[in-house]
Design a protein around this nucleic acid. Structure first.
Lengths: 222, 222
DNA sequence: CATGGCGCAGTGTGATCACAATTGGCACGC
DNA sequence: GCGTGCCAATTGTGATCACACTGCGCCATG
């Protein structure tokens, strides 16, 4: 039932229009990483296909790719859900963040200039607004963006890539974390991170990042 | 052309026979991680399908999954090859190993008992034999098995999973490394690792692992 | 009213097909 | 001899279909 888009013309000239499976992948990935889906949320290939206007084939490929990254879990019979992480798993993922992120921050420190810090400041303010307005998805999104903006300067794509898969796995859990302790104040350690950056203090930056990362996830113990 | 296997009966009683895409995934993954494929080696979906006796569909899913893990790279037009890593990339992956593996070793140390160390000793001897016989694949396989045997004791599946994707990305490159410097002696630091384990010396173990990991990949600079 | 069995709707899997894009080689012309 | 354009074979993509399995609800029975 190809109702939504005729899709008759080759590609309609200019736009390379990324492949369908890639559109689906990106869409789902963002929903998961930003905590739009609760842990254990069930998904079906036909449902995904319908919501993206494609058939099962691209949906299956996107799901396969995401489950390879740990963003989705598949039951023995192939049923797809967002992962429900055990406490041990959460703690382990937090420890990975605590291992990788200070390293990335340290590498970025040498390359950080004022414009970068200002940009992070702006993101941090957007984060504070999301807290005030009680918007979980915007909170998670700006929080990750704050960290990613810094880490991009580390020029270490492999490490950052690994870290993003960790964030991805934590996405649904982060949503629970947020809704459980309705926080009213923005993450306090972001200020310390910015101060350490301005001061060019490597040790302080590593500590601030490590604390920021560990802090949030500590409250998640069931 | 379903020639090889009739596949008429439901499942032939007992064997759950893992799904076709999973068989293909495992097969390819092992070939890549053990260095059976050189960097830049081209693969085709139809070719993979034929060599595993399946159609393109499971082959595509396996390829998608592997490329999500960085074990295969896909050109813009979808052509699939094993990755040809840049020097920067290799160095970065080595640094990730140097970050994760000492941590895993340290965690395993508390749980390591004599039987484990004996098993690692045996694997190390198999590794030495592979060196003498100039068998690259067996060398890589036993080398990884040596490390994995230790890290499994760390009881940290998330970290180990991340590390395995790093090993996977390095697979084809390891093959080049081996054939370039036809080594005639086994990795010297494995002995140090075993000694530190027997002594229960955490600092020495971390150093030995870090050195072992860094050592090998250092010689790969083009 | 509880419980066990049956059947149907829903779901993932894998094969196949049509199609567009890329690729590689070959011949032609400069 | 070398570059250039074209053609055919190859390749990935996505839709569709048949099929087997799972899970759940419904109904009959104790």
């Amino acid at each position: 039932m190809p109702d939504t888009l005729p899709r008759l013309l080759p590609v309609q000239s200019d736009a390379p229009v990324q492949a369908a499976h890639d559109r689906v992948y990106r869409g789902l990935r963002q929903q998961i990483m930003h905590g739009e889906l609760a842990p254990g949320h069930p998904l079906t290939l036909r449902g995904i296909g319908k919501s993206f206007g494609v058939s099962m084939t691209p949906a299956r490929e996107a799901v396969r790719r995401l489950s390879a990254e740990g963003a989705l879990s598949m039951s023995g019979s192939g049923r797809v859900t967002t992962p429900e992480l055990s406490n041990d798993r959460i703690e382990e993922l937090a420890q990975i963040r605590a291992l990788l992120e200070p390293e990335l921050g340290s590498r970025a420190l040498r390359r950080a200039h004022l414009a970068l810090i200002d940009r992070m400041d702006a993101i941090n303010e957007a984060n504070a607004r999301a807290v005030n307005r009680q918007e979980p998805v915007n909170y998670i999104r700006t929080n990750l963006e704050f960290h990613r903006t810094l880490y991009l300067r580390a020029q270490s794509p492999a490490i950052l890539g690994l870290l993003e898969t960790v964030w991805l796995q934590l996405g649904p859990t982060m949503r629970v974390l947020y809704t459980r302790l309705r926080r009213t104040t923005p993450p306090p350690h972001h200020r310390h991170i910015l101060e350490a950056l301005r001061a060019g203090d490597d040790a302080a930056l590593r500590l601030a990042i490590r604390t920021d990362v560990t802090q949030g996830l500590k409250h998640l113990q069931v």
